[in-house]
Amino acid sequence: MIVATIRRIARLLEAASLALGALCLLYMVCVVGLNVLARIVFDATGTALNLMIPGAIEQVSYLLGIVALAGLTASLSHGMIAVDFLVARLPQRGQALVARFWFLVLLALALVLCWLFYEDMLATFARGEESQDLRIPMFLIYGLATLQSLALAVVALREMLISQGDHGEIA
C-alpha cells in the first residue's frame, strides 16, 4: 500500500517535472534565439536599435539548473542508463541489488540537495536577496530547486523500492 502510494505520487511528480522542464527549455530556446536575432539587428544598425531581452543570460542560467533537475527526475522512470559489462553478467537479483544501491545513493544526493536548497531559500528570504539584473527574489529560485530536488528524491525512492535492475538503454 505504501509502495503503491509512492508510485502514484512519483508518477505525478515525473509528469510535472517533464512539463516544467519542457516549458523552461522552450522558454530558454526562445530567449536565446530572440537574443541572437536582436544582436544581429543591433550590430546591423550600428548599435542604434537595441531589441535584446534584458537579463537574458540571467534568465537562462537560472532555468538551466531547473531543467537539469527536472530532466533527471523525469528520466528515471525507465531506470538508469548503465554501460557496464560486469553488472550485466550478474544474475537478475544481483543486478536488482546494484540498481537499488545506486538509487539509494541518488536518493541521498537528492535529499542533501533538497536540504541545501531549502536552507538557501530561507536565508535569501530573510536577507531579501534579489537577482542582479531582473530583481527576481532569490528565494523563489531556491524554492523551485528545493521542490525539484524533493521530486527527484521521491522518484529515486520509488525506483529504489521497485527496481529489478533493468537499464534504460534496454527498456
Rank of each mutant, 00 (worst) to 15 (best):
L37T: 05
P54K: 07
A44E: 07
L152H: 10
E130H: 11
A145R: 03
L140N: 01
I81C: 01
T124L: 02
L49T: 13
A110M: 04
P137S: 06
T124Q: 09
C114D: 02
A44Y: 00
C24N: 11
L140I: 12
A74W: 15
M28D: 12
D166P: 01
L152S: 05
L49M: 09
L104N: 07
R7L: 05
R127G: 00
S75W: 08
L150T: 07
L25I: 04
L90I: 00
S75M: 09
L34D: 04
L161V: 11
M28T: 13
S77A: 04
Y62P: 00
L113T: 06
L109S: 11
L140H: 05
L26W: 07
I53R: 04
M1A: 14
A153I: 12
P91E: 12
G65R: 05
L113H: 04
A171L: 09
V29Q: 03
A38C: 06
A38I: 03
A110Q: 03
F103Q: 03
M1V: 12
E58Q: 07
E58H: 02
R89F: 00
G46H: 08
L107H: 04
L34F: 15
Q59M: 15
L76G: 04
G33L: 09
L113P: 03
M160W: 08
A108T: 12
Y27V: 14
S17K: 02
G143D: 12
W115P: 03
S163H: 02
V98C: 06
F85T: 11
E130C: 01
I53D: 12
I136D: 04
T45L: 08
L51N: 08
A68I: 15
H78S: 14
F42S: 12
G94N: 02
Q132C: 02
P91F: 00
W115S: 10
R89G: 15
R135G: 04
A10H: 03
G71P: 13
D166Y: 08
F101K: 03
N50P: 03
L140M: 11
L161Q: 04
A88M: 05
I2Y: 06
V32W: 09
A88F: 06
P91W: 01
T5G: 10
L64T: 09
V60N: 09
S149P: 08
D43M: 13
L72C: 14
A15E: 14
H167A: 13
L113E: 04
R7W: 03
C114V: 00
A156M: 01
S163T: 13
G128H: 08
R39N: 10
T146A: 15
A74S: 15
L63M: 14
A10P: 01
V41R: 02
H78F: 05
L147G: 09
Q148S: 12
E129T: 03
E119H: 03
L111P: 00
N50Y: 01
M160Q: 08
L97T: 11
V3Y: 13
A38S: 15
V112W: 15
L150M: 08
